[in-house]
Amino acid sequence: MLELRLLQGSLLKKVLEAIKDLVTDANFDCSATGFSLQAMDSSHVALVALLLRAEGFEHYRCDRNLSMGMNLNNMSKMLKCAGNDDIITIKADDGGDTVTFMFESPNQDKISDFEMKLMDIDSEHLGIPETEYEAIIRMPSQEFARICRDLSTIGDTVVISASKEGVKFSTKGDIGSANVVCRQNTSVDKPEDATVIEIQQPVSLTFALRYMNSFTKATPLSNTVTVSMSNELPVVVEYKIAEMGYIRFYLAPKIEE
């Protein structure tokens, strides 16, 4: 038996909007720790890892570990039927082949339940070791989204170069080239507007902008984004989900042959 009641139902709606274009089908894993997901895009270039900790739910009952295979497009269709202020409860029976999403309006005058068929999905779980990254950039999430969107109108790939001087985003295309440099800036009114660059050593990596742009669909989840890089490793683009956990996107670099 599984019953997870989330007061801020809009968080789950935003999570689905952030990942449904990157991943088609995925297993949601439920354990005493929380509600989590790890999945790759169809070409295995990008990976998304989601954690919503048990403590973040108003009520969290998970009698035993459960893995539920869901089509994210169908799940998104169902969650779109929930109001932004609704409380969302996820319910499933052990060994059942459906999951139920229950939506309660804030003043309890409307209660809906949507039952969705589960699917069997071969799990392709990767072990991701904890890594000390050589460059960690924290910046406003809207600024990062703006840069990715702007550069993708010029080129297909972005070179992200981080050094003590700042972080440079560069692209080249048929019509020309572009560079955007962000310097550390902590003299801001609100901490979420700061750009903070921590560098152990300079890092330069090349990535497909198509994926970066897809990751920025998580922007509504957090005011800030953290980009962690080490040479010759996938980048991690992390959006913290307030008091609940995180959504992390891993993207494999492009390497000159």
Partner: peptide, 14 residues
């Protein structure tokens, strides 16, 4: 053109 790597190059299946 640079070559796009995949996740299995970096992480092992568990």
């Amino acid at each position: 053109h640079p070559n796009q790597l995949t996740m299995s190059k970096f992480f092992d299946y568990t």
